[in-house]
Design a binder for these strands. Structure first.
Lengths: 240, 240
DNA sequence: GTGTGTCTTTGACGGGGCGCAAACCGGTTG
DNA sequence: CAACCGGTTTGCGCCCCGTCAAAGACACAC
């Protein structure tokens, strides 16, 4: 946790510590308070960032007022660069959910780094590839899966990403309202509230105000994946 | 159309023709018949490809038998490389919808090319960035938009991508069943059939068997974007 | 303590769109 | 010509889940 965020960032993996230091020296450090917006959707995409400390989120606003949460960022994560190296405006907004510190590089600096360290370009390609796969998975979910399963998946992802073990189970260590959960899964706060109530009744989670503890991860996994498979029998009869 | 597919591919933009030729020389050429599968989801991702002639599609299968069509490929498009450079298996399958020719490079060759031509790596980053944005747009649509609008969007994208002007309007120049359209938009063939029938009645399109002609693009745009905006009035009253 | 605002819960209602079934093409094969 | 097969259309019923309304719970300020 106290490790250097830059060194942990997969984008800068494989660099000598000297190279890393040079890159760090070129960065601008920004301090953000909780709720502050680092860049807004539609802004000219000039900077790439790495989150050093804190928690941020990337959100996209839909014309009709809906919001989609794309990623929740933890220290060491690279963001903004996808737009900064490609198109000319950010497709998402980046906001701090708590006091945070980011390192930023201008587009020109970033290009210079990429040319000086081909390894960084390859790393970035790999990181982007991973992100594309995640997005494809999400598209698939949204297209074909029921809400409860999508919510279960989102919660499990959160647990993996920002989960923290406590006596009671795994705490999702980021403030997370019902609406946030809805905006992660493409549903409404009413539906997520209902789902969480139900899960709580069954003892799978403990849900408080902006707070979520997973007590029975296996139960959620069972909802998230299709582990019932009751109608295999017929096929056995059909086969021979 | 008869231009060299490799030269048109954004990934290899900015290379000298000598460099291009060297890259072409390292490629393996594959001939595919319609319906043939070049690689299947889950296969170890070894090769990157550029489509030279024909039409292909990238599809992803969902455990419960549903299918999602991710992209329809036209000559000059790069594919497979995102997985080949990142993770170790393809997340999608690539199948030819008609007789096609592809150029392929092994992972090692591709890495060699990337190192020899840093420009290619930058190009690839840009291409991936674009793809990420497209996927984000799609996630947003699936999360918040009604089926008819999603279908309208998909059709307009197809028109832009593989549209061909004919006397009657714009022909979507790829065999496209109702089910395909459903698998592009996350709905069912029944619903897409109903929507197309309705559009046909209103004179927006002419839909045949695996065939679609757009006669009134503006009408579809009106469905795809929200151009009604009837309740602005209130806000004017509220403002002062 | 009381008040206030935000987040959450729950009920009631309605509709969009999915699922199934069955009929209907239109092109291909024999 | 008839038979067939894959794609398409259409009706019908149902149910998930979005929407609205209202009350409840919790945190914080004063």
């Amino acid at each position: 946790m106290d490790l250097d965020a830059l060194a942990r960032c997969p984008v800068f993996e494989g660099l000598s510590s000297a190279g890393l230091e040079r890159i760090r020296a070129e960065a601008q450090r920004h301090l953000l308070e909780g709720g502050e917006v680092l860049f807004a959707q539609g802004d000219p995409a000039i900077h790439s960032y790495v989150l050093e400390t804190g928690r941020m989120r990337l959100v996209q606003l839909h014309p009709d007022g809906r919001t989609m949460i794309y990623r929740i960022l933890t220290p060491g994560e690279f963001f903004g660069g996808i737009a900064a190296l490609g198109d000319e405006t950010y497709p998402v907004s980046a906001e701090a959910v708590e006091a945070s510190v980011v390192l930023g590089w201008s587009r020109e600096t970033m290009y210079r780094i990429l040319r000086a360290h081909p390894q960084v370009a390859l790393n970035l390609l790999r990181v982007q590839a991973r992100r594309i796969q995640e997005l494809q998975e999400r598209v698939n979910e949204l297209a074909w899966e029921r809400v409860e399963r999508r919510v279960a998946r989102a919660v499990l992802r959160l647990a993996r990403h920002v989960g923290r073990r406590i006596e009671e189970g795994v705490l999702v260590d980021v403030p997370l309202s019902r609406e946030d959960l809805a905006n992660l899964t493409g549903t409404t706060l009413y539906t997520t509230s209902r789902i969480l109530s139900q899960w709580e009744q069954r003892g799978f989670v403990r849900a408080g105000r902006q707070r979520l503890v997973i007590r029975a991860p296996h139960a959620l996994v069972e909802i998230a994946e299709d582990l019932s498979v009751p109608e295999r029998r017929e096929q056995i009869e059909d086969d021979p």
